[in-house]
Design a protein around this nucleic acid. Structure first.
Lengths: 204, 204, 204, 204
DNA sequence: ACAAGCGGGACTACCCGTTGTT
DNA sequence: AACAACGGGTAGTCCCGCTTGT
């Protein structure tokens, strides 16, 4: 087997991701990426024909990891409880830990970053972002609907919006983390979301 | 009498703002701005010494308008009711209308856009973003604290996080608007926020 | 009136033309052109958006000069004699002097150079080359036909091919000039052509 | 036993030759050559150390084939007649057929192509081009001189120029073939040349 | 004999900012 | 207040050729 370039490719993706989250896609130059990754232009353009292809690869990797996390959360929650409300609350709880860890490592969400530069990318890329959001909404909506079969919400519920609120809290927390330079908002915001769900479906 | 350059300056700011929200700051070139604004290089650099100064002017204008809106909301709410909870809910209600209108015009928040490219700007710029967020937090926290002097919340409350949630909902809605290409999320998310406040401070 | 860039543009065209004739279009880099022209990249790309546009401008200028020469030759010949054969021979005679001068200055024909790289250019460019050749053919064919109305050729004549032979001699002379590093072939070849015409339409 | 690389080498030469005649040497990249030949970089640089060596190999092959054709023509003509004028005319006649076939296959002359990019190559390469031209001139001059020992030309003759005219007609025909996109010019131009020779050395 | 991966440099195109002119 | 022309540098892309492996 000839030389294996997988590691190089991964290092390029890591370097680019960090730079894009801090400077934006447009200000992230290939030169900076290769310097950060410790390689040369030859190597870069061997693995990615264009900068745009690098962008595609980055969000592909990110969305896949994001949805893998969602699957993981769902599976764990369903193992830990049989009650739909408990499952929902456990999912949010696990998300609190996972997202808090993530925000420590890299303060910023690639999906939001790409959304704020969407005119630079083709529709296929935006479609990937949409798919990620839709999958989260779908999974949480499912759970909310299951809860509503046994419990009456205290206020009339827009299921999709309620599910989307998880996304809002995560995205809001990311932005505040960057603006304030703190890492506490992810936990704080998602706890508000959990509180809301609890109050909405409280027994009494 | 020299020609009035105010209109030209405003057109530059408008063009740049639209481009930045769609493509990001780095991908927004002076050439594209002047093309969009229908002027020439000479005119641009007469009004702005550098591209960075344009960026500063844009967020300055945006933050000022943002805080003016906040003042407006507060004043109106305080005129409409004397009860702190009612004032809080009215503020959110007015925000729903104002923000929904805004998202129709330009789907995207300049503060978030700059946050996702903060490494491109100096600390002074980030400080302006922080100031905007802090002012909203401060104003809403104030109201929340006023509410809590007469009402006991159903769950223990982190006042700052609860106030920040307005920001989360707005920012989340902006991002989802861009990804989904819809304009409904702003209203939907802020209504969740109002529901949460109502449930938290409900009498019974 | 603001600064006049016409001279700069002309210097770019001159520099590029010389380089292209020696190195070919592909090996003629913008850097070499601007160095030769004594300007900067900014100036170059102000006048020509792309290298391809430079190519278009060069052949446009060349073809126009080429056809202007043809018009000049025709007018002079028609002034100097009323006999079609004399006019034809005078045209070739004047061409001998003009082309010999040209080959002294720049040994090579832009049309041939572009023809040998035609896959690099669009069809519109090739069309311009064709137009130049066709105009020469048309003008000479006209004269040949006029001669044949009064004189019987010694051998059956393919009028177009006979007219094209002027082009063959010029192009052949250019190539041999470059390969041999001599400047004599233009005169020598065109004199053969004139001999051929004389023999073909000789009285006895 | 190692694989036979002769076929690969030949395919590289063929691919490169076609590309050079269409795009020029400078625009003919190794990447395009290997794509056209259906091989990889490794294979290419195994057979040719540098791109320049490829160029040398191409003109070497071309000149050798060209001179082999000349020998073939000469031998055939000398077998078919003992009269110098007949030999000369037969040579041109055979050349008409051979060159017409060649122009069908690949419209363009490598020698001219290299001549129009001669500054890209070393003197040794130009020397090869010169050698090819000189050999044709020598062979035809020889025959012309033999003719002149028995026949008086109708007009004073520059022997070298008359011999070179064969080259002019061939090169001119190639260029016109490319510009017009037709294949008829080779025959038409060389027939003019034959006519000229006939008229020049006609008995009466 | 050939394939994959990579080094480093060169190319076109573009970008930000300045200058001379009105 | 604004425009055409230009200076100098950088960005993305590609190119040639070398290395490592089979």
């Amino acid at each position: 087997m000839p030389r294996d370039g997988t590691k190089t490719k991964e290092r390029i993706l890591d370097a680019a991701q960090t730079l894009i989250l801090g400077h934006g896609y447009g200000a992230t130059t290939v030169d900076k990426v290769i310097e950060e990754a410790g390689i040369t232009k030859g190597a870069f353009f061997y693995h990615f024909d264009t900068k745009a292809e690098l962008a595609r690869a980055i969000i592909k990797r990110h969305v896949e990891a994001d949805l893998a996390l969602l699957d993981d959360l769902t599976a764990k929650a369903e193992r830990l409880s049989r009650d739909p409300l408990q499952q929902l609350l456990i999912m949010v709880g696990l998300l609190i830990d996972a997202a808090s860890e993530a925000v420590e490592a890299v303060p910023g969400c690639l999906i939001a970053s790409f959304a704020y530069q969407k005119m630079e990318f083709d529709e296929e890329t935006t479609e990937k972002l949409r798919h990620a959001f839709l999958t989260w909404r779908g999974r949480l909506s499912e759970k909310i609907r299951a809860v509503m079969e046994t419990r009456k919400p205290k206020l009339p519920v827009n299921v999709d919006a309620l599910a989307d609120m998880a996304t809002s809290c995560v995205e809001g927390a990311y932005i505040m983390s960057m603006v304030y330079g703190e890492r506490t908002h992810m936990r704080a915001q998602l706890e508000q979301y959990r509180n809301y769900l609890e109050l909405l479906f409280a027994e009494t």
